[in-house]
Amino acid sequence: MSDAVAAPVSSRPPALVLGAAGFLGLNLVDALVADGQQPRCGRRARTNVLALRQRKVPLVQADFDAPETLREAMKGIDVVYHLGGHYPRLSLDLEKERHIGLTRLERVLDAAAETGVRRLVYVSSTATVAPRTDGSGSTEVDLFDTPPTWGAYHDLKWHLEARALAEKRWEVVVACPGACLGPWDLRMGTSTMLVGLARGLDVPHPDGLVSWVDARDVAKGLLALGTMTDPPRRVLLSAESIRLQSLLEVAAAFYGVTAPPALSDAEALAFADAEEHRAAEGGPRARLARELVDLIIHGPFIDATRSRHQLGVTYRPLDETLRDFDAWARRVRFIPTKSTQEAAP
């Protein structure tokens, strides 16, 4: 990490992590603590803070719908890591999700401006990365000129990143991580398929390029963006881009099962839409989220060389991520061991 200039711990003002209780947030908190920092961790009233409480880090109210809590949380803060960008639970109402997301981001940006924050590290998504027509790897320069029309998630992430990059009042840098895997995915986002395989369940999925990355490596990249003297404006974070079917076959071999075949794009879209409508009517969570389908079938091939060279990120291999995720998931019993199989939910 030759470009990263770390200030002595004692002289470094605290960092604030928005979205600290989430998957990436917990891994970032661990990275900040390992770096000798004592991050202030933003939480909402109903946030699950069990994992943060275990880490003994200071918690502070930071509700995106209560701007005064954001201003209070940012007092005396040098760097804000914003990992709490709106994530639409369902993809059914594009206009509504965009409005919620942009309103909340505006409040974060305003609070940072009012409290004198020096830098904001905004966590976006590879959903904003445009594929290249020649099939070569997309880099930081590849942005969609207009929002992709594939679904609410792509639309929202494009608008949010565009707003963050347009900020002129102080420094904003943007990180675009791919599909995150690894420990602390408490809400079972991208890890759902791994847990499904481990449990021998059906795992409905389309096929397409997925740019996976270990959440701990994303955290290292974010830490570098927050601490280095001259960070790049936009960075893509991904270990590799592979077909989802290939990734699932590796994971299936790890669990000694056979990977289920992929649905066609049309089948996956229809299935996800039906699942979302059922969930919207009060049913259980969708077994296949629409945004995951959109991300997979439109996934670009990512070239994350900049993150390796400028941030010093060394991405761990898939087998290490799978092994560590499995150990964690068994510890919290998302994946039952023989002794817990009967008690498993």
Partner: peptide, 29 residues
């Protein structure tokens, strides 16, 4: 569901000031 179960344990941990761990959720049905 698993998410709201964990949310419940989180609320309990805060309300009663307990050091409940994420792994303790699995024992509560």
């Amino acid at each position: 569901d698993s998410v709201s179960s964990m949310e419940l344990l989180s609320m309990l941990a805060e309300d009663f000031e307990l050091d409940v761990g994420v792994e303790d959720v699995a024992d509560v049905h």
